[in-house]
Design a protein around this nucleic acid. Structure first.
Length: 224
DNA sequence: CACCAGGCAAGTA
DNA sequence: TACTTGCATGGT
């Protein structure tokens, strides 16, 4: 029986990779202070609109919402789902996403008087469970809302995170959302600022250096 | 022209 | 549990 399981060896390797990657990326990109959005509401809307969609198209949809005066709970509550879908059209999947935005707004109005601040006053574990019950909100969207709009300590796992860690052999790309989340939770200080910045750094890296094919030679992480 | 983008829900085995 | 498919516009 070996005294040191391969698990703990792996943990050490993972730990050093996670920490080194953070330092390297931060020295490359600096402080990104994410999420691109000017208010908690805009962040929530962006989180739903960006589902499997290029951010550039989300910006157009949000621009349309602004132009139409629809960046408020009130306005979003009163507009019809169909009209909303036309405004957010550039983001793609527009019928589904109109339904999802409506579902969230209804949830917010019904449970928290339409007040985002009130929503975030709820116990964060309970809130996450409730968000996951809202139509159109899965784990990534829930964690994005909690971290970036609410400042809660939840690490966001997205396609870029999987791809980057998968390609660098830190974890199987197909591993579960929980496995990925545990990896970061285990090896990082429990600070919202770090969670926020790290995910932002990973997305930036993914956009620039880790698109589908091929693996970019200039990726800052290639020598770890 | 083909392929993909910061997912999710619903259906199948 | 672990796949598969539909959803849809716009950039490369």
């Amino acid at each position: 029986m070996q005294r040191f399981s391969s698990r703990s060896i792996d943990d050490l390797a993972s730990h050093s990779w996670i920490v080194r990657a953070y330092d390297l990326l931060e020295s490359c990109f600096g402080d990104l202070h994410w999420w691109p959005g000017e208010s908690p509401l805009e962040i929530v809307i962006g989180a739903i609109l960006t589902q499997n969609t290029a951010w550039i198209n989300v910006e157009k949809a949000i621009g349309n919402l602004k132009g139409a005066g629809l960046l408020s709970i009130e306005a979003l509550y009163h507009i019809t789902e169909e009209n909303l879908s036309l405004v957010i059209k550039p983001a793609g999947f527009y019928r589904q996403k109109a339904k999802r935005l409506k579902a969230f707004i209804d949830f917010l109005v019904l449970n928290y008087g339409g007040n985002l601040s009130s929503m975030f006053e709820e116990d964060e574990g309970t809130l996450r469970e409730k968000l996951l019950c809202v139509y159109g909100i899965g784990k990534e969207t829930a964690d994005s809302i909690l971290l970036y709009a609410g400042g809660k300590l939840f690490f966001v796992i997205d396609a870029y995170t999987r791809r980057i860690l998968g390609r660098h052999g830190v974890m199987q790309e197909r591993a579960s959302y929980e496995e990925y989340q545990k990896l970061f939770k285990t090896h990082l200080p429990k600070e919202v600022r770090i969670y926020n910045q790290y995910h932002a750094l990973l997305v930036e890296t993914g956009k620039r250096y880790c698109r589908r094919e091929p693996l970019c030679a200039n990726c800052p992480l290639k020598d770890i």
